[in-house]
Design a protein around this nucleic acid. Structure first.
Lengths: 243, 243
DNA sequence: TAGTGGTCTAGACCACTTC
DNA sequence: AAGTGGTCTAGACCACTAT
């Protein structure tokens, strides 16, 4: 490793943060794709020229950020976007009886367009840049309860508008475009459904719905997906843990 | 410390977990009240008969759970329910421009009553047990945007119905009743406002509102507060980080 | 200057998985 | 039996705060 982080005027960067950064770099570059088994702590320590304890601190933090999963006796793996992770990290809608189920999807449309002002701002892309817009309905226990509008930069996901979209779209981002979603931020409001949205969900216009405005951030820190979801919450709720 | 956690059939309890448990015990018993400065790592290690590294691991975990705050050069302190902590941990409503402000409160009523079935279930209290119910309106930038219904077990907060309720009610729980709120779970729905609630908020009946159903858990693990909040979300949103 | 938490190291042993 | 992560120890030095 480089010098022990000289206490320069610029700030202090502990060794384990530099180690973290190097490990994330390998994940971003796909040298270590999702599911990959990392070298052991001892090997990494030797390779990076730091102690095993320092490597451990970096690995533990990455595991707490859900970028790695560690299993005693087996090793450390790059996290995957399997349904279980999506369900726990990204899908907070829960049946009132406590059951959490992954929703089915029915794509309504997928098309290229020119980024709106808010999309340009969200993604930090230039004027006239293109985005792909996907609209789908989502079904929980067989009933359409969510209508979703997804927007992604065309430059990041070229051609996705022509793909078959799987139920779990983040696994497609990873497998076909090499983009791993690391985290997201959601803003929630209560709104009245517009007539077309109400029709899609089979309720009357003006019915209250939960509006979820999500911005998803990739491993490298870029915002790469904006998603507006309108949810009926008669028998479901959004679960938020304040810890 | 006791034996090094014999690998009995019953399971494995690492030393640092036992240390954590002992530290929390002292906070629950108010031997270490909010704001208290803990002994240094070295002192705790000596007192508990473990190494400094083990104490450190316990303290770090408690700090990540927001039960302690650590400050380099100063020491480790028991967390307090100051407005800043409430704002970051428990109050997720944010202005659309990103500003977070602590809301003012106006108490509407506070009265003793008999626990309903759902309250008995939430608190695990027996039939005919009493609860205190508080109703208040909350103002953001001068406008009434939230109507709140709080229910707490009378046995945990005896006489609270006769108190002056401060803006930050969790600081009252701590100061007058020795109860520290450690974490909470919130369930969100979109609902239509009833005529009386709409009148309180100065909008028409049927207006969509965000319903937040919160169950707050004390340091010792007991659920001690249930709170239903109805929020207007025209210029505010509920912020949720998916990390 | 003294005391605190923050970082880093080196080494030991334990628990779990796989072969 | 071998290899992994999980726990625990002991000791060093650094960065920050208060006096």
């Amino acid at each position: 490793m480089s010098e022990p982080a000289a206490p320069s005027a610029i700030g202090f960067h502990p060794l384990y943060r530099q180690v973290k950064h190097r490990l994330v770099e390998r994940m971003v570059s796909r040298a270590w794709p999702p599911g990959h088994l990392l070298p052991s702590e001892v090997e990494l320590a030797g390779e990076l020229g730091v102690s095993q304890g320092t490597v451990r601190k970096a690995l533990d933090e990455l595991a707490s950020e859900r970028l790695l999963t560690r299993r005693q006796g087996r090793g450390t793996f790059v996290a995957e976007h399997d349904d279980a992770r999506i369900l726990f990290q990204f899908f907070k809608l829960t049946a009132d009886n406590g059951k959490r189920v992954f929703p089915e999807s029915r794509v309504i449309s997928a098309a290229l367009g020119v980024a709106s002002a808010s999309e340009r701002q969200a993604f930090g892309i230039p004027e006239k840049a293109r985005v792909v817009r996907i609209r789908r309905a989502r079904l929980l226990s067989g009933r359409a309860l969510i209508v979703e509008r997804i927007a992604v930069p065309h430059a990041v996901f070229p051609g996705i508008e022509k793909d078959d979209l799987p139920n779990n779209i983040y696994s497609l981002y990873a497998a076909r475009f090499g983009v791993t979603i690391a985290r997201a931020q959601e803003k929630l409001k209560a709104v009245a459904l517009s007539p077309p949205d109400a029709k899609l969900l089979g309720v009357s216009a003006g019915t209250p719905a939960l509006l979820i405005d999500r911005l998803a951030i990739a491993l490298d820190g870029r915002p790469v997906e904006r998603r507006l979801s309108l949810c009926l919450t008669d028998n479901f709720h959004y679960l938020s843990d304040l810890t």
